[in-house]
Design a protein around this nucleic acid. Structure first.
Lengths: 223, 223
DNA sequence: ATGTTTTTTTAGGCTTGGCTAAAAATATTT
DNA sequence: AAATATTTTTAGCCAAGCCTAAAAAAACAT
């Protein structure tokens, strides 16, 4: 496992995201520069260096795409980022939209044992607080895109697809309020004061769920 | 709050430790170089830069000592380091001697809100797993030097001076086994298998304490 | 007090990861 | 297909943080 600098890791991550969101096409110099907020010339420089290290394929004027090794490292970085975001929200009580910048720093801490223990501490979550899947040690991840119930706006409809923490007491509570995997929900009202929500379950019953419940429930939006 | 690079922070921390352990005398160039593992010439360089930033007093051939501002920043870094070490041991289950290198990285993450929330999450601990005091936001810290009971060797004697987590259930347990603040202990036997210890309490009763108990009990060594 | 040893500083270089300005290659228009 | 516009690369520069080798200052010994 070669060790990369934070800057190198950020390039890999950026190229990873760009190629992913653009169906596997090579990432262009300008696009990378735009994401990282650097000059295009700096990108060209770095692409040469990373290419020499075997982490990406690069040909002049032709953009960059990750090698298998580069992909592995980038996926692992995404894993670290999403685990830290989960930690910040679930354990430290940050709101899910305030954690990105801190996770950007934490993701560069080098220690595979730390990541492994953090994963275990969080009960091996499959999704981060934004609903993005967390890759496992081998880079595999769920493909489903889900969000916390608490992230929905009034009026939105969704289907329950999972829970973050699956303690018996929480599952019993869900049973009590008629919620099971696949249950259809619609947000009727939101109370900023304590983060609770009034929600229609299966189009008939209405319940008010506390913030804690809303954050533990994962849903997929529907129309 | 100016932002320092990790390298700058490390210099401040080193000078902080050196002047502290040497009764306030200025830290010498060579001593700093030895701690950081860098060349003396590099230290001279950096001392000039930090002096220009007003973080330390530096005169040629006369060593360096922190200004008030430098002291503040260094103390805050120590706070962050010790909080992260506490997190790694108490929450992630690292052994207390394996956390230093990881904390060295985590301490450089820039976010005062993160540190504040981490502190709260850990129940505002006063000492880290090595028994060193954790400075509070204003830089104040306990002066007592204490260690976890689990850090003692067979035969060593000590006096109970505090607990890490002070939930009612733990305090009740202590009551049950005759332990209160100031109780005299002597380690009679240690079981590597599960980290438990047989301990003499007040020179008369003997109890076997689980690893969890031994890690939650803070003691001061006696002869 | 003078010479020797140790410590510290200066001088000059190197790498990383940035920058700008100009040149070259590629894409797009007409 | 030629002209124009855009993208990318090259060339040259910079700061941070490190290095080595040599010079200078301070400390120690005789």
């Amino acid at each position: 496992m070669e060790i990369l600098t934070p800057a190198e890791e950020n390039y890999l991550k950026t190229i990873f995201k760009l190629t992913e969101s653009d169906g596997g096409k090579a990432a262009s110099t300008n696009a990378i520069a735009a994401v990282l907020g650097t000059a295009a010339a700096s990108v060209t420089d770095m692409l040469k260096r990373l290419s020499a290290k075997g982490l990406l394929h690069y040909e002049k004027h032709r953009g960059a795409s990750l090698t298998e090794r580069g992909n592995e490292l980038a996926t692992n970085l995404v894993r670290r980022h999403r685990l830290w975001e989960t930690f910040l929200v679930m354990k430290l009580g940050f709101s899910w939209d305030a954690v990105h910048d801190i996770a950007e720093q934490l993701e560069h801490v080098q220690s595979s044992e730390l990541v492994e223990r953090l994963d275990a501490f969080l009960d091996r979550p499959k999704f981060d607080p934004h609903g993005d899947p967390i890759p496992d040690t081998k880079g595999r991840m769920a493909s489903r895109k889900q969000v916390q119930l608490s992230a929905l706006a009034v009026g939105e409809k969704a289907v329950v697809v999972g829970v973050q923490e699956s303690q018996a007491s929480f599952l019993q509570y869900l049973d009590r309020v008629q919620i099971s995997l696949g249950a259809a929900l619609q947000v009727l009202e939101q109370f900023d004061y304590d983060g609770s929500m009034r929600v229609a379950v299966q189009g008939k019953d209405e319940y008010t769920f506390s913030q804690k419940v809303c954050e533990n429930l994962y849903v997929q939006k529907t129309k």
